[in-house]
Design a protein around this nucleic acid. Structure first.
Lengths: 200, 200
DNA sequence: CTAAATTGTGAATAGTGAATCATAATTCTT
DNA sequence: AAGAATTATGATTCACTATTCACAATTTAG
């Protein structure tokens, strides 16, 4: 049966979504043009009407991930005003995000995304560093408000913040989902707060 | 020029070492039989005298990594007696280990190691969970000694401990080594101590 | 409605990498 | 030193995957 003709922009979205899902369930190495095409419901060669090649698909996937991350930070900024609640909200949001969408750690970790492609590696670095910067900024604001200790180095604390989610994501992945990321985040949060909050 | 004939056991070591180095510098996806063979100085087909196939090589690599990790924990146990110094020593040791040997995060993270091989995935899970167990044990001993707060859940703290190294390793990898893991570990340690140590 | 543009299809191509095998060189045994 | 055992080699096979291309179907424009 022939697939329905669909305008390229929509197909592109479908393709990127399909790629993201595939990465999440099978990992980057299992990401093939054939696999993506099958998921979209077209034939492999049809994909080339919408993307120049696999590289372009991967670039689009990265773009999408970056947007989603940025989105979730700016939403949190709108929802809450103070540093600690913001960080807590961000933590839980990402625990949820990563536990639903397993693609993110795959992309960040798997060298398959950027072996031999320095630009792409730089792009991934940019995504992570951007995210860290935003956390640092929340931390610094918290210091100005007096909610966060002055002797905490924002950059260090930001990496530790990442450290509450990232190892959990790895464990979740490696244990086939038997590790409860959300519970872990809930447990870790009060401990982390003690690290960085002013006493009182 | 023909490679010198070498007894199988030695070749096996050379092959595993070469594989580890290759993974460290190029990533799992760049790990090919040809690449390993070239590094050892033999021809690809010669590798099959010493290993049944690529899978067996990868299994041996995992074995080696597990040994090294276990080694470093038991050394730390011998060097120091108290929980906090033990953890600090372990942290710095691993910061050094990971900053020298980039293969570890590649193996742990890259799905290429275990796509479609549940046993291997389970093996990786085992390595990480084993390591966590050992950290938990140190933490529990610390609680009995009174050096570590009773309200800290060892499992949670162990994952956070991982969180001091793991994101740093990712950053180091993605930034081509521009991120200083050791400095990061040194900065993170006192912050972490405040999370878990009893006051005073 | 017709022609042009767009999208989908199946077959073919080319590159890659793992694995096999007959054969050659080397080392070991006796 | 001669034969057996071990290791190395090059050619080759096999499977897999990305990509291209001529052609068919479908949508859009005039």
């Amino acid at each position: 049966m022939r697939a329905q003709k669909t305008e390229s922009e929509l197909r592109q979205q479908q393709i990127v979504e399909a790629a993201l899902e595939l990465i999440g369930s099978e990992g980057i190495n299992a990401l093939s043009i054939a696999g993506i095409a099958a998921r979209v419901g077209i034939v492999p060669s049809a994909l080339y009407r919408h993307f120049k090649g696999k590289d372009e698909v991967l670039d689009a996937v990265l773009e999408l991930l970056q947007c989603r991350l940025a989105d979730s930070v700016s939403r949190v900024r709108e929802e809450t005003k103070d540093a600690l609640p913001r960080l807590q909200s961000l933590l839980m949001r990402h625990a949820r995000m990563l536990s639903e969408n397993r693609a993110i750690p795959h992309v960040v970790f798997s060298d398959g995304v950027y072996t031999g492609r320095p630009e792409r590696k730089a792009k991934v670095a940019g995504i992570i560093l951007d995210y860290l910067k935003k956390i640092e900024q929340i931390l610094e604001e918290g210091q100005q408000e007096g909610a966060i200790r002055d002797d905490v180095v924002p950059a260090t604390a930001a990496v530790m913040f990442l450290g509450m989610i990232l190892p959990a994501a790895v464990l979740r992945n490696v244990t086939e989902g038997r590790f409860d990321m959300i519970a872990n985040a809930e447990n870790a949060w009060p401990v982390f707060v003690r690290c960085i909050a002013t006493e009182g």
